[in-house]
């Protein structure tokens, strides 16, 4: 069970603390789209100070830097790698620019004696989608993959359709590659922040094709996303019963066992254990 990750504008100090009040798996401080061009430098400075102050919060912190083809990229990386963060989010990643990105990260890490910084890549170009498998095999830095639907639609010259047809292939590809490499994958943000029904349907679609969760661009989206990617009470109870049946079978020395008239095989047991482990791991401190 995964919760949402929440985007927070890098230049809005008042939101930096408040973001940690929400029930999310990660906070992503944004230096890219949320920050106007003439505020890029000040946002970077502000964010670095915020991050060095907010160390009491345990929720993992990521920073979305500006793209490699922007004039802000190098300084973003140079400053943020020195800050206490859990990783960098890289926009418009593809197998070709990723090599340059890693090279620059290594240079900064060496200069400041920093460990390897994990990367959360955004797949939001046609090239990114098509070279995703190469990307995740290029480096072990990548821990998360985010599908960026808005930029991808722009790259494809298509508009958003009612049932997100335009994302069917990219979603399947991102989910499949991520699962193959045991990486966490997050679905594209839903931009209509007041449309709860639309968000719900969009999140369900993403869940159905294998996404672990979905990014929230406003705190009001967090609970809806968390609810979609949580297990239902029925699923949890059934998982508990399956594990209980398994334990009893073990005590009796039985290799195979049945539950409610059906034989339980290993994938079913694994799923039950995954559900219970996820819940235990998500209890409040």
């Amino acid at each position: 069970m995964r919760k949402s990750a929440l985007f927070v504008p890098g230049n809005q100090a008042s939101m930096h603390v408040g973001a940690f009040a929400f029930d999310v798996d990660a906070i992503i401080f944004d230096l890219e789209d949320a920050v106007a061009l003439h505020h890029k430098d000040s946002a970077r400075t502000l964010l670095r100070h915020s991050l060095s102050t907010l160390t009491m919060f345990k929720i993992p912190k990521y920073v979305r830097v500006n793209p490699i083809d922007s004039p802000f990229f190098k300084e973003d990386i140079a400053q943020m790698i020195q800050a206490p963060i859990d990783g960098l989010m890289i926009p418009k990643a593809d197998a070709y620019n990723l090599l340059q990105i890693i090279k620059w990260c290594e240079q900064v890490e060496t200069q400041h004696s920093k460990k390897q910084t994990p990367l959360w890549i955004i797949v939001e170009t046609a090239l990114g989608v098509e070279t995703l498998w190469d990307m995740v095999n290029t480096t072990d830095r990548i821990t998360h993959v985010l599908l960026g639907g808005e930029d991808l639609m722009s790259d494809l010259h298509v508009k958003q359709t009612y049932n997100r047809q335009e994302l069917a292939y990219p979603r399947a590809k991102v989910a499949m590659v991520s699962k193959a490499k045991k990486l966490l994958c997050y679905d594209t943000p839903y931009v209509e922040i007041n449309n709860e029904k639309g968000l719900l349907e969009d999140a369900i679609q993403a869940k159905n094709v294998g996404f672990d969760s979905k990014i929230a661009i406003h705190p009001s989206q967090v609970d809806v996303i968390n609810a979609v990617f949580s297990y239902t009470e029925e699923e949890i109870n059934q998982a508990k019963e399956i594990i209980e049946a398994y334990n009893q079978a073990q005590q009796q020395g039985l290799g195979a066992f049945s539950f409610k008239g059906k034989m339980v095989d290993k994938p079913v047991l694994n799923r039950a254990m995954h559900i219970i482990n996820s819940i235990e791991g998500n209890k409040h401190d």
Partner: peptide, 9 residues
């Protein structure tokens, strides 16, 4: 304010 709404919930 989302924080106010969170407190209310």
């Amino acid at each position: 304010d989302p924080i106010g709404l969170k407190i209310a919930q």
